[in-house]
Design a binder for these strands. Structure first.
Lengths: 209, 209
DNA sequence: GAGACTATGTGAGACCTTTCACAAGGCCGC
DNA sequence: GCGGCCTTGTGAAAGGTCTCACATAGTCTC
């Protein structure tokens, strides 16, 4: 009945697009107008064929003999990644880590905007964290629905993370960036990405000595 | 002449070991003595066969009919990952991000210990950041060799990151955790892992709407 | 405007990773 | 100690990803 969907693009390809996008932003800042897959590949430490094949999932963005127009390709990738708009993001956890995230200036200009901060500590609720008033985590699901928020960042201790994630899912969140050092469970259709610096360090220490 | 090396274990397998280790630490804290691959897999949202095959690269750690002894497997994974010891880590960058990292309590107890902090800002050099005196980044390579440091964390702005990484490599560092939002180039044999929260968010925003 | 050069987009094949499915081995109750 | 039950460790097969290499199409020089 409906048209057949394109075969889904592999997630591993999606994962590389933000890397390409980041490199293109730097190239543009450097004033470079055109970039060949070979040169981009060199910069990123990968093969040019991989870049070309990745991009080919979404269209033909290059010019044979020339390469890619930096600005055009950047705009195309933004569209593909759904960041040709600004996403509001909820931050849960107003401790040291939440503090650092709330003050981090790198979200604006790359598609994201922290719009509210939650904590469950009565000492903190109602206080300010930078430009935010800290909201009561008990209101999490209701507030998320009210603000129509789809993305959240979790910066709470490991033992609170699963409960927070459950509340986020109840509130309609579909994408979670989890700084808590624990693997959480979510229903199908909800995406989770993890940031645990120790996991990265441990992965590299395997190769040491 | 020398004995043939075992076929190298795929890096993707190495990347999962810290996840297993983290889950085992939680299981142990919960008082669980034994865990079956099936139950661990459920907790981590993966297949039990993958866990068993991953572990089989390093030995036979389980008991048929029973599962794995939590403490024993945890110790074995620590040994495999070379974290049955403590690694000293250098932190470069004493800004907001460096501050948050220096104060993060999660390194101790998981194999790592921040042992020195560098910055290139004359206003900061000589001041204190928590328990650290901030050292002059100009002395990076010499100091790293003196202290025999193999692992570093980069928390400087993107435009300074490549120069810092080059200094780290000169100083003998073999593993770099890079918080700067830029892909850096390193010689073969040096490992880099990236933490850029925006990259993670962008990857998930593809699936939204 | 013709020829030399360059870089894309892409099938085909090589290579890598995951899953399947089962033999082998260990526990438990009676 | 025997039968039933359970889970590991692992070849083989299936599935996924990357690289190769080239036809195609565009640029640039003269």
């Amino acid at each position: 009945m409906g048209m057949l969907p394109d075969k889904a693009v592999p997630d591993i390809v999606i994962g590389r697009l933000p890397i390409y996008l980041r490199a293109l932003a730097h190239l543009e800042a450097e004033g470079q107008r055109i970039i060949a897959s070979k040169d981009l590949a060199k910069r990123l430490g990968m093969s040019s064929a991989q870049i070309r094949k990745d991009l080919s999932h979404f269209g033909e963005f290059g010019k044979q003999g020339m390469g890619y127009d930096v600005t055009y390709l950047r705009d195309q990738l933004r569209t593909v990644l759904n960041i040709d708009r600004r996403w509001d993001v909820a931050l849960v956890g107003a401790g040291d880590l939440g503090h650092a995230i709330a003050y981090y200036g790198g979200f604006e200009g790359r598609g994201f905007h922290i719009s509210c901060v939650f904590d469950n500590n009565p000492q903190k609720i109602g206080r300010r964290l930078g430009r935010f008033e800290i909201l009561d985590a008990i209101e999490l699901p209701a507030k998320l629905r009210e603000l129509d928020i789809r993305i959240a960042i979790v910066a709470v201790p490991a033992n609170a993370a699963q409960a927070v994630v459950d509340d986020l899912v109840t509130g309609g969140v579909k994408a979670i960036l989890n700084y808590a050092p624990i693997t959480v469970t979510v229903p199908a259709g909800v995406h989770v990405q993890y940031i645990d610096p120790v996991v990265h360090l441990q992965r590299m220490s395997y190769y040491l000595e």
